[in-house]
Design a protein around this nucleic acid. Structure first.
Lengths: 344, 344
DNA sequence: CTGTTAGCGCCTTCAA
DNA sequence: TTGAAGGCGCTAACAG
């Protein structure tokens, strides 16, 4: 009858008891403790009672890590790699992932890449080494080779917000094209013929889709797209405002603007407001509380949490029931809604 | 020379190789692989090269879970239990925790309680079973016995946003009292003598502190607090707006209002705005983009990410260097700033 | 420099 | 109903 007495991290405080400690305390074998704690039928009621009492007395908590190692079971962890957790979009999405994971008894490990491809590489590697059951990734870079399940021994991966380039994996997207087309159409329906576009970096997939939606709406309406009114805005504070100022200062300024994301919408709003210009504004992504603003804004909204839930569902399919999940990549597109904010 | 061939989760796709597979491939022992992968000096350059080549060929990735079990090292995981991840406050805080944890090579496991004490209990238990190295908790309930390190075998716990009741653990708070006092003082300095207070549920610690700060400022100014102007607002949509409407409709309405959190501030703003009333408004928590609103608002701001970083620092002290960390509980208060939003 | 033995905490298998 | 042996994947502690 021996008792483990090592501390948690070298600094001995309260030794974490093991099954053998409980076994010794209850005068049974570790095996019996294991069975009792698992509610295994083959344990007599009174033995079980003694074991549970001993476990309680020692405040014993089974080590799920060791348990998982032996049972060959998975870690029960999902990895979630995002570019910027402080962005409400991603945090709501994270909540969607967390809630669905929790419903199935899984936990979520988060990693923030800051949009840096190197950090993403490192994070994915680390999560794989920790043997997460799968991961959901908002890709930071354009090279996705390291996210190929083939390179990860079949570890399921789901892309969110932008599609995989190369790897045959599941992905969830927002209807960037359709949402932008609808918003642009509403500007066109209001009579606007010269519409400026505040886009994203050319390398971004979402940026390309939104620009495509913009052009499609113009095409639908038979309105030619004036390349001079297209601006690709750097993701820096003030850039959208400056671009808008410049557009409004032209000899033939646009009568309306479409901003390709939240940041651009707010920047454009500021510039329009400062210029006292009556230019109409629509944008992608919600702008909470915009109904309290002084001028109207129309936005393309969607539920970020829904993206998280859908991504988690695709992942859980493969994690929990791989044999019942098609091997080919599946994808889901989350719908958008047009929302008009008007003062008062 | 045997080779493991079991799959990841029963459904065989790509078997995850083990060290023995790499060893067989490189015609060495598993021990040599272990050493080579660890950059242990006692391996000849060419053996190491062969091992690394074999690992590469098999896309081998060391199992950190098994490794941790053997080395007795910690899991390298921090638990973060929040009440509502979709609240920007908590998501920014989560980012603060993640960034500091990442700097030390630790990952963060998140759990969302939805403010439910039962869920918190379950989460804390689960995280402890997963042998996280410590946890940061935004408490959902008032009973904190389950968060006492004494009950968790010394597992370090840090409270954030509200203090522990009972357990002797570290905690990080916002200067609820000082921030509210300063904001209230600014209303008093502007000449207001009848100020309404839209508070939180009476059971909340932060609610009590903010009310205390409000009363202190009034006391400082020699202005008696009119109990009739104090409203404790339920955390339901529309409640703050309704309470404000009621206050404004009184025979002797207040000339200014202080709202104890973001939700109340926005609700009060709506009611004031709808009534066309000129009542001044100040509130706790930032209201992003309020400078685009039609009327001015003053808010008490602070950096949520800073709370996360501070909490993570307190936790990391105990996780990484327990012997150099005082055993008594420490606490940090994050400062607030007054921020006046004015249109135009 | 390399390999063997043993065991982290738990559970599967088989024997008592 | 209970226990002993063995091993999950990895690595300390010893050989050689």
């Amino acid at each position: 009858v021996t008792t483990t007495t090592r501390g948690r991290t070298g600094h001995v405080r309260f030794p974490t008891p093991t099954m053998r400690d409980v076994a010794a305390h209850a005068s049974v074998s570790a095996m019996t403790v294991s069975r009792a704690l698992r509610d295994d039928p083959g344990v007599s009621p009174e033995t079980r009672k003694r074991v549970l009492a001993a476990a309680e007395a020692l405040r014993y908590r089974r080590n799920d890590v060791a348990r998982g190692l032996r049972t060959g079971r998975s870690s029960g962890l999902l990895g979630l790699v995002v570019t910027n957790l402080s962005n409400p979009f991603y945090s709501e999405m994270a909540l969607g992932v967390e809630s669905l994971a929790a419903e199935h008894g899984l936990r979520v490990v988060i990693g923030n890449t800051n949009g840096e491809a190197a950090r993403e590489l490192q994070l994915v590697d680390d999560l794989a080494s920790r043997r997460v059951d799968g991961m959901i990734v908002i890709p930071a870079g354009h090279d996705h080779a390291h996210l190929d399940p083939a390179a990860l021994h079949g570890l399921p991966v789901v892309f969110a917000a932008s599609p995989p380039s190369g790897p045959q994996v599941d992905y969830v997207l927002v209807d960037d094209f359709g949402g932008t087309r609808a918003a642009t159409a509403s500007l066109l329906a209001a009579g606007h013929r010269r519409i400026g576009f505040l886009g994203l970096q050319r390398s971004l997939w979402t940026g390309a889709e939104r620009l495509r939606g913009f052009c499609a709406a113009c095409e639908d309406a038979g309105v030619p797209v004036d390349d001079d009114l297209l601006r690709m805005v750097a993701p820096e504070p003030g850039a959208a405002e400056a671009a808008t100022r410049e557009l409004l200062g032209r000899a033939d300024p646009p009568t309306a603007l479409f901003a390709a994301n939240n940041r651009n919408t707010v920047g454009a709003y500021r510039a329009i407001s400062a210029a006292g210009s009556g230019v109409a504004l629509a944008g992608f992504d919600d702008v909470p509380l915009a109904d309290l603003f002084t001028s109207p804004v129309t936005v393309v909204t969607y539920e970020p949490a829904e993206i998280g839930r859908q991504a988690a569902q695709l992942l859980l399919d493969r994690v929990l029931a791989p044999e019942r999940t098609p091997t080919h990549p599946r994808h889901v597109t989350v719908a958008t809604t047009l929302k008009a904010y008007r003062p008062g």
